[in-house]
Structure formats: structure tokens, C-alpha cells
Design a protein around this nucleic acid. Structure first.
Lengths: 239, 239
DNA sequence: ATTATCTATAGATCTATAGATAATGC
DNA sequence: ATTATCTATAGATCTATAGATAATGC
């Protein structure tokens, strides 16, 4: 069961699970290209159809034979894991930014902004995260931030910028919520900064001053366009 | 085109589209039962697998032959439309409640609460609404509230309870956002009142007093359970 | 020489319908 | 008698793999 056939030099940093058969970066140029195309198509189709998206369709859109997909990702879940790991690597980069913030409150703002942005930017994430929660219950995307955020929350409460009746989990839920705007169509996705700002004002201590809201609300026509799920491009044109 | 074969007494309130061939309530007892079972199964499976859920699987779970499904809903889109209309009828009932509210602010609170609750309660709604946006771009679930809410927003700004830099569309987006918690697993869904309350505090004029947040935040263990997508039952047990 | 790709294919599942059989309401 | 259900089935699409063919790197 412990893949005794694996060659020793396969010891590439196993991203999240300890015993994962990490698909090594393929050595051949064409292989690497195909892999990238497959990943891109997978993102598109998972976003559209959820985790059950047809693997054949993914290969087709990547202009690659199905067998190539199976060679790269023997199982649907392998594909999901790889997409998860790639996304997680992106999120990881945020940590430094948070630590660089001058005040606890600003650190929390950056945390919520970056995580929300991360979610909004990739509508394939919600299905991927849901599936990963099943595959690997112990892994949670923002787990590496947990302790850190908890301490920021405590400090922000102490210095009177964060209201005292919320905690780190509320923040996590709110961020997830804002991030879900990405899945609701392009127009919604464009609104996330504004909505996050309103949420942050709800989290701020009552006597702390509010900054100006970013952006402007959609007008009814734009909202129509949004709800009707136009492409990102069309939505921008409407704006 | 105007379905001349329809009998006159079929004049059931055509829910959203004017010219819809409304599937009449079937007359035979077993037929009605089967239809209800199909609708229930459809809700479950659409929530799980999205609009592309297998029709055969829906029939199977309803313990009914596929042909029965096709008889009731000749097309997948017919099924979606019916589910949409049923959901919309539920939402419709909210109107009276909003109108009965003593102040504009309280009316807005009821509006957001009820719509969010409506969304959270039925995780099949997001896929259904997305699909309907494609099928019938002119139909929007909360369209009937538009004018009404706009006037509430204006009045609430005037009396100093709602911040002046937001508008009705912001409210709609925020509500949709909170409602999306239903699709994120049972634990999240249980948090929506609390999160909505925080959002409302962000919408309130800065000098208006804040009420106490409802509920309490999840602790880390519960949050874990939530993220791992346990059943509603298990999540409650964890609480 | 090695590594990866593609084509072809078996078996499963899905959509959609035709035709035979069963249940209901008048 | 009417209305609805079920079984069976054709054709499409999907998953997963075997085996023949092509592209790369040393």
C-alpha cells in the first residue's frame, strides 16, 4: 500500500498530505505545457460544473487526449488535490503582508482583503475546498494563520479598534462569505471590496471612525447584468 | 404559440413567465405523490451536484421510473423552472411582513433577514437561480421588492438609521452574500443570523446604537466540523 | 533510450422515448 | 375510460486503460 515502487529521487516536497504521490513537475517540455493546459481547463470547468465536471471535457478543452489527463492525474481527486495545493501556495504568500502591517487592525484588514480576493479570483475554489474538506478533513486552507489571527484579534480588541463581541472564527466566516461573491457571477465579483468594507465597518468598534467606502454601488442596469451572469468582460463594459 | 389546447379552468396563477405552459397539479393521487417526491429529490441532488445533476439519479432517489420524471418535467429546464417558481412563492410571502414593520430600518432588517433565511434554507437555490438567470434574464427573484426597498432605503437614510453612502443594490448584494452561507456546509449555515447582524451594523449610520449580536461565535472545534462539511445533524451535535 | 502522447475501446451511466402494464376517478 | 407508471432500449457521453505512435533530452 505504501507505493514501494516509487523511486527515491521522487522526494519532492509533498505539499499537504505526508504520503501523497506527488506528481513531479514533468520533465519534458510538451508534457509541462500539457499539464498547464489541463490545469487551466480544469479550473474553468470545475468553476462551471463543480467537482463532477467531465474529465473528458477537461481534456478536450485543453486539446489533449484523455489518457494524458489520466497520466497526470490518475484520479479525479488527484486533480483536485493538485489544484488545492496550487491555490494554497498563492494564499501562503499573504502571510508576509499581514505581518508587515503597522497596526493589528490594519493587519486584519489585509488578512480579510487578501483571503477574500483569493477566493473571488478563482471560482473553482469553492468546489475544490468543499471536496478537500471531504478528502482531507484535517487540512484547512487558512489553518496556518490560525494562531496568528487569534493574537491579532486579541490585540485589536485591546486597542479598541475591533468590537469585543466577535472572534477569529467570525472573521473566517465573514471572509468566506465575501469570497463567495466570486461564484455568483462577474458583476458581484467586482463588488467584493465595497461589500468587505461594509463588513469591516460592522466589525469595527462602534466609536472608531469609518473610512470612505471604496468604489460605488452598481446601478440597477448594471445589477441586472450582474444577476444575469454575463461574462466579466460584458459586466465591465456595462460599468 | 399561445397554447390553445389549454383548458380555461387551468388558469392557475402563472408564476413568473406570462406564457409558461404551467404543469398543472396532477389529478391522480399517486401522480401528485410522485411529483412531490421528485421535487424533493431534485432539491437534494441539485444542491449536491448543481444543475447538471443526473435526472436518472433524481428519479432513482425518488423511487420512481425515469419516464415519470420526464412526464412531469419534459426538460431539465422545466424542472428548474418549477423549483424556481415554488421557491419564489415562498419569498412572496415575505412582503406583508416587511410592510408591517414600524420603522424603515426595521423593515430593512426584516427584508434582509427573510431573504437571507430563504437562501440559506435551501442550498439548491444558488444553482437554480444561476440557471434561471440564463433561461429568463428578465426574471429576478426579488424584483417585486425593488421599488419598495428603494423607498425604504431613502426613508431610512433620511431618518438617520442607514448610512448615506450605500443603496438598495448594496443591500441586495449583501443579502445574497449572507445567503450563500447555506451552500458552504451546515455549520456556516447556522451562523447566518450572527453574520447578518454584523453586516447590518456595517450598514447602520455610524452614530446609531448597535444591538447585541445574536448567537455566539463557533469555537475552533465547531468550526472544524463546519468546514469539513458535516451534516446539519452532526453540526448541531457539535454545538 | 526514455518519456509522453494519442487512438481505440470496454463497460458504465446518462438522456430521452416507445410501448406494454397498472392505478385511479367518475 | 383515462391517466400515469414502469420496463426496455437506442444512442450519446463518460471513466479508465491497453497498446501503438510520436516527441524530447542526453
Amino acid at each position: 500500500m505504501t507505493s514501494p515502487t516509487r523511486k527515491p529521487q521522487d522526494g519532492v516536497p509533498a505539499p499537504s498530505a505526508p504520503e501523497r504521490t506527488a506528481p513531479l513537475p514533468p520533465r519534458r517540455r510538451d508534457a509541462r505545457l500539457n499539464r498547464d493546459r489541463l490545469i487551466a481547463s480544469a479550473r474553468t470547468l470545475l468553476a462551471q460544473h463543480g467537482v463532477d465536471a467531465s474529465l473528458e471535457a477537461i481534456a478536450r478543452q485543453a486539446e489533449v487526449g484523455v489518457a494524458t489527463l489520466y497520466r497526470n492525474f490518475p484520479t479525479r481527486d488527484d486533480l483536485v488535490r493538485v489544484l488545492y495545493d496550487l491555490a494554497l501556495a498563492q494564499l501562503h504568500a499573504v502571510r508576509g503582508e499581514i505581518e508587515a502591517a503597522p497596526t493589528p487592525w490594519e493587519a486584519l484588514v489585509i488578512y480579510t482583503e487578501r483571503v477574500a480576493e483569493w477566493l473571488v479570483a478563482d471560482p473553482s475554489l469553492p468546489p475544490i475546498l468543499r471536496r478537500m474538506a471531504v478528502l482531507e478533513p484535517s487540512a484547512r486552507p487558512a489553518a496556518e494563520f490560525d494562531g496568528f489571527i487569534a493574537s491579532l484579534v486579541a490585540r485589536a480588541k485591546r486597542d479598541g479598534t475591533l468590537r469585543r463581541d466577535v472572534d477569529a472564527v467570525d472573521l473566517a466566516v465573514l471572509v468566506t462569505m465575501v469570497g463567495s461573491l466570486g461564484g455568483l457571477g462577474a458583476g458581484y465579483a467586482g463588488q467584493w471590496r465595497r461589500q468587505l468594507s461594509i463588513v469591516l465597518d460592522g466589525l469595527r468598534a462602534a466609536d472608531a471612525p469609518r473610512p470612505r467606502l471604496p468604489g460605488r454601488p452598481l446601478n440597477v442596469k448594471e445589477y441586472q447584468a450582474t444577476v444575469h451572469g454575463l461574462t466579466r468582460r460584458a459586466a465591465r463594459a456595462a460599468l
